[in-house]
């Protein structure tokens, strides 16, 4: 059994101008010890789709589908059961490190409170573990940092503090939304090594959202590409990055000057704009920007189907199919 099975996940958000579908039927599974990469343009619904797993969506959002974890549907947990999963089983590192720490509480408090709540650990023990974790994420003078406040640290340090906080309860699944964007290369490498070690030693699974293909190829086992609220392609990292089959994935990789060279390349410029969830094109949402679009692309959304060992693709045309 997989650690997490997400099926037909849909998220709608009610706004001033009616309801919009942000995440439009997403399926994936995450295995124990796996690093599951998620990439895709800004606004494609990556963050919203993971917030849904912990029921942390903004007001006015509604969810459908299933997210089975440990035999239970995360989307339907409530009360104590939900709190037990949050933070203890599934931990989250948020996209914006500057705003996800409480400005008036000490770092030590923010790293130990949930450990005490979940494990009934003593203050001393929880703080000791917090200091250890701060050392692991390379915060200088961890003992002292415990007494400091977030504003005394740089953005990158705060991001590392947030990572330490997420790992403090030794969760089984870490959801990390752009966890290394504010970090310089050496610190970033340290964080990735830490995650890699944790997954080998304790089977930590990670859902890693990142724009950084260097990070992706160095640590992710599997990559899913999001486009307009759907997964358009997914597969083992090496394979997917070397032989992308969806025109969008292809365009993403082509848009890079030197794919996977210095590890700092971002998934960015593709001609045309990503569609807003409010005005998603009918059929394949990518068709206005796709050079391979056919009539069917404009009418019918292509289903995500198996196109090889562990590879999935949603394209009517499949223009880059391997000849074999």
């Amino acid at each position: 059994m997989s650690l997490l099975e997400v099926e037909e996940l849909r998220v709608r958000i009610r706004g001033e101008r009616g309801e919009v579908t942000i995440v439009d039927g997403v399926d994936y599974t995450v295995e124990e010890g796996q690093v599951f990469g998620v990439a895709g343009e800004s606004g494609s619904g990556k963050t919203i789709s993971v917030l849904a797993l912990l029921q942390l969506l903004p007001r006015g959002a509604s969810t459908s589908g299933r997210a089975i974890y440990g035999g239970r549907d995360l989307l339907r947990l409530s009360g104590r059961a939900l709190r037990r999963v949050r933070g203890r089983e599934l931990a989250m590192v948020f996209q914006d490190p500057l705003t996800s720490l409480h400005p008036m509480l000490t770092i030590g408090r923010q790293l130990s409170e949930h450990v005490r709540v979940h494990e009934g650990a003593s203050k001393r023990a929880a703080l000791a573990r917090a200091a250890e974790l701060l050392a692991e994420v390379r915060i200088p003078d961890p003992e002292r940092a415990l007494h400091a406040f977030p504003h005394q640290f740089s953005g990158g340090m705060r991001q590392r503090v947030a990572i330490a906080g997420a790992l403090a309860t030794r969760p089984k699944l870490l959801i990390a939304d752009e966890p290394t964007t504010a970090l310089d290369v050496t610190v970033q490498a340290g964080i990735l090594r830490l995650l890699d070690r944790l997954r080998r030693e304790s089977g930590l699974a990670v859902i890693l959202i990142t724009h950084d293909l260097g990070v992706m190829s160095s640590i992710a086992d599997h990559v899913s590409i999001f486009y307009a609220g759907r997964i358009v392609e997914s597969g083992p990292t090496k394979e997917l990055l070397s032989t992308p089959r969806h025109p969008y994935t292809r365009a993403l990789l082509d848009a890079l000057p030197h794919p996977v060279d210095d590890g700092r390349a971002d998934l960015l410029a593709i001609p045309g704009l990503p569609p807003s969830p409010r005005s998603r094109p009918a059929g394949c949402a990518f068709h206005p920007r796709c050079a391979y679009a056919i009539d069917a692309s404009r009418v019918q959304a292509p289903p995500l189907v198996t196109v090889g060992a562990a590879r999935l693709l949603a394209c009517h045309v499949d223009p880059f199919a391997s000849p074999s």
Binding site: R83, V85, R86, G87, H102, E113
Partner: peptide
């Protein structure tokens, strides 16, 4: 509506504690 309150919630801290302490 601040992110750090959502972050506290994500850590499984009870609503009561979140309101009174955070």
């Amino acid at each position: 509506h601040n992110d750090y309150i959502r972050a506290a919630r994500a850590k499984g801290i009870s609503e009561r504690r979140i309101v009174l302490r955070h």
